[in-house]
Simulated assay, not measured.
Amino acid sequence: MEWTGARYADQPTVEVATWIAAPPGRVWELVSDVTRMPEMSAELLSARWADGVTGPAFGARFVGRSRHAQLGEWETTSTVVACDPGREFAWAVGDPALPSALWRFGLRPDGDGTDLSQWMRMGPGRSGLSFAIDAMPDKEQKIVFVRLREFERSMSATLAQVKRRAEA
């Protein structure tokens, strides 16, 4: 990722990808099970389906609890906005019409395996990062850049965990 000088209002994105020696169905089982995601994420502490839902489905909601050294601990409710088994799993954090973030796993068959990508977009809704920007508006571009780099590192680590588990 290069320095872009992005502001939060620009809805900056980050994406990472890897190839996994496992079929899309196996990879899908891992990336669409939000209850197992905390095992593969340094920031996500817990996740549970809400409203009596027990698995991924379009419109399903889940509650996640996260922690960050500078931002503290918080809980969000997300809504599944794309659920195409073996191909795509995406969710909006907060209000689906004005999410604080949009996250997506994309899966594509490739030879004897799967190309897996993880993508996220900040905003357009307010997030915990908005409070840091409010407190230091002159440092907004640096705050956004640093957070995108954190997401990039975390997402790369998550994909490495998915790869390890899918290939086991």
Rank of each mutant, 00 (worst) to 15 (best):
T76E: 11
G72R: 07
G64H: 10
S78Q: 08
P24C: 00
A50E: 15
P56S: 11
G55M: 01
T18G: 04
A47M: 11
R36M: 10
V34W: 14
P24R: 00
E43K: 11
S46F: 01
W19E: 13
G52T: 14
V31G: 06
A17D: 02
W49H: 10
R65Q: 13
A69S: 12
V16C: 00
V53T: 15
R87S: 10
E43G: 06
R61K: 10
L45H: 12
A57E: 12
G72K: 08
S41V: 05
P56I: 06
G72P: 07
T54A: 13
S32N: 07
R26T: 11
V63C: 02
A21P: 15
V27C: 05
W74S: 05
V63T: 15
S41K: 09
W49V: 02
A42N: 07
T54F: 02
L44P: 07
W74H: 13
G52L: 02
Q70A: 05
D51S: 03
V16E: 03
P38I: 01
W28P: 14
F62C: 10
T76N: 14
T79N: 09
M37N: 04
G55R: 08
P38A: 01
V63L: 11
G52S: 03
R36P: 05
L30V: 06
G25Q: 10
R48L: 06
R61Q: 11
S41P: 13
E88M: 03
P23A: 09
V27W: 12
G72N: 02
T54D: 15
V16A: 00
P85G: 04
G25L: 04
V14M: 07
V27N: 03
S66N: 15
V53L: 04
A60N: 15
R87V: 05
L44N: 13
T35Q: 03
A50L: 09
P56W: 05
V63I: 13
R67A: 14
T35F: 02
V14S: 09
W19V: 07
V63D: 04
G55K: 01
E43W: 08
R61V: 00
A60R: 12
P38G: 03
I20W: 11
M40K: 08
V63M: 12
S66G: 11
D33C: 03
T35K: 01
S46C: 02
G86W: 13
V34S: 09
I20G: 10
T76H: 13
L44G: 01
H68W: 15
C83D: 14
